[in-house]
Design a protein around this nucleic acid. Sequence first.
DNA 1: CAAGTGATTAGC
DNA 2: CTAATCACTTGC
Length: 188
Amino acid sequence: MLAVARDLLGTVLVVPARGGARVAGIIVETEAYRAPEDRASHAWNGRRTPRTETMYGPGGTAYVYFVYGMHFQFNVVTNVAEVAHAVLIRALEPWEGLSLMRRRRPGRADRELTNGPGRLCQALGITRAHDRADLRGDRVWLEEGPRRIARRGVARGPRVGVDYAGAWAARRWRFWVRGNPWVSRGAR
DNA sequence: CAAGTGATTAGC
DNA sequence: CTAATCACTTGC
């Protein structure tokens, strides 16, 4: 599933908007979460609750949840049903629907539109209504991107905001496109 | 750098 | 039921 986190870089995440419009961005930063052993995962140690139930669904579905009382986070569920693996999408390079993104994030520079997991959900209009969405469906989906990301163009480092996870926090399970201007703060 | 925000969860 | 926590963002 670390491979999936890497391979998602360069892929385009698309959400339809009104009037046939699309809002989309190229994935430039991801993080892998691998329950049950990964202490940083919501499904660590087999934890199975109403929220985490989505991660136990089949691969190719969206896991969207709400944190800190104000932000949504979008993940791709990556394994077969009952195996709770997921990849958090942490940053996008804006690709389509820029004007709508700017309207949804007023006063922000283009650089700040989608360079964070909560920010990209706001820009794309992703909410908990997208939780469990089939990524082959028509509510949110993935498309092949315009550029191929070479293996050497991928940098990696520790995941963000998971200090509570002990030794698992040190694992370099965060991947980003080296040098891309839209990676989130903290990506080098 | 700290406040903010409310869903989610563990623990009684 | 209550209280603590949180895969973050923003503005001071």
